[in-house]
């Protein structure tokens, strides 16, 4: 019965990379990150989305520089000479598109649309990014704690998530934005409005990611490496943040890229309803709201911010989907 055991213990198993060392150098080990990057590079749709996202972020960051470069001023340059004084719409075809104003100008006010789209992108992306970060931080923390500790902690946090998910967010946002005065918390003007939007959008969206993280944690905590850490005398913060959190990086990253477009849309909706950042500071939702008055006589005005939102949301979604495929080893 002991026959199958009689193999000398010195026989080493094949070492990774050792097989091909004779044939032109050793094989480099690839980290999980490198594998995900290779897969992402192969996904053209996702890469296209990623490129658009990168361009948008760069454009948003450089909005001020671009304005100077093209001699555009988003809020104060009223090109009244280009507005038809009778109809109050831009002279020329397609909303007054010209070399000086590649996307045309606003009816009545005559402000350059490209400049306003750039300035608006800055606000849209800033709010969407920071609100997403807020959701992700709260959601991850709550999700990990609920999933790892279980019991009454889990019950408490899960019910809290239910409460938040059942919350009429839009109505609350409308009410809160109306109640908060122009000066509050030591902030005022645009800064206050932006902070308020980030708080409203971010603070009420965490349960979505919280649930995903809780579910992942539930399955991760049963893995033996958690027991291994425990049997080495690891403290709970170590297990939560060093052992579990790195394994949650993929869902967190994917969910973030998918949450950003949702938040862009939400910010646009709030601005459209007039509770976002106030004029004259341009936002995409605010521009869309303005354009609604003119859609019969100047449809191009509505098309510009609409397309901006559409392209941005689509690019983020495509990139997020591709990222999910690349990071999930089972979805080959």
């Amino acid at each position: 019965m002991t026959a199958p055991m009689d193999v000398p213990s010195s026989a080493p198993e094949a070492q990774p990379g050792a097989v091909l060392t004779g044939a032109g150098g050793s094989i480099q080990g690839r980290s999980l990150r490198q594998i995900a990057w290779l897969r992402l590079k192969r996904d053209r749709v996702a890469m296209a989305g990623g490129v658009v996202v990168a361009v948008l972020v760069l454009a948003a960051l450089a909005a001020g520089v671009l304005d100077k470069l093209f001699g555009l001023i988003p809020t104060t340059a009223f090109n009244q000479d280009l507005i038809d004084p009778d109809l109050q719409i831009p002279k020329g075809a397609f909303g007054g598109i010209s070399l000086a104003h590649p996307l045309g100008i606003e009816p009545t006010s005559g402000r350059d649309l490209l400049a306003r789209i750039f300035a608006g992108s800055w606000i849209s992306l800033l709010i969407a990014f920071l609100a997403t970060m807020l959701s992700v931080v709260i959601g991850t923390l709550m999700g990990v704690v609920a999933g790892y500790f279980g019991g009454w902690v889990d019950t408490l946090i899960s019910r809290l998530m239910d409460v938040f998910l059942a919350f009429p967010l839009l109505v609350f946002a409308l009410a809160l934005a109306g109640v908060v005065p122009d000066n509050a918390f030591g902030l005022s003007g645009d800064v206050l409005r932006i902070a308020l939007l980030i708080f409203i959008i971010g603070f009420f969206n965490w349960p979505y990611i919280g649930r995903i993280i809780r579910g992942q944690t539930l399955s991760l905590r049963e893995r033996e490496f958690v027991d291994a850490a425990k049997s080495l005398g690891a403290r709970q913060p170590y297990i939560l943040f060093r052992e579990l959190l790195p394994n949650l990086a993929a869902p967190i990253l994917v969910y973030s890229t998918l949450l950003i477009p949702t938040n862009i849309l939400f910010e646009a909706a709030l601005s459209f309803l007039g509770v976002g950042v106030r004029p004259p500071t341009p936002t995409w939702g605010g521009m869309l709201s303005d354009a609604a008055h003119y859609y019969q006589i100047d449809p191009e005005f509505m098309l510009v911010p609409g397309l901006a939102i559409f392209v941005t949301v689509l690019a983020f979604n495509l990139f997020g989907d591709g990222l999910r495929d690349a990071l999930d080893p089972r979805a080959r």
Binding site: E224, F225, A228, L232, G233, P246, N247, A249
Partner: peptide, 24 residues
């Protein structure tokens, strides 16, 4: 109180695919 004792009692786990953290 167990922590110092952990040095003396250790465990080898059953499943080598789940006992090593894939991100480390």
């Amino acid at each position: 109180a167990l922590r110092p004792l952990r040095r003396d009692i250790q465990m080898i786990f059953q499943d080598p695919y789940s006992s090593l953290n894939p991100r480390h």
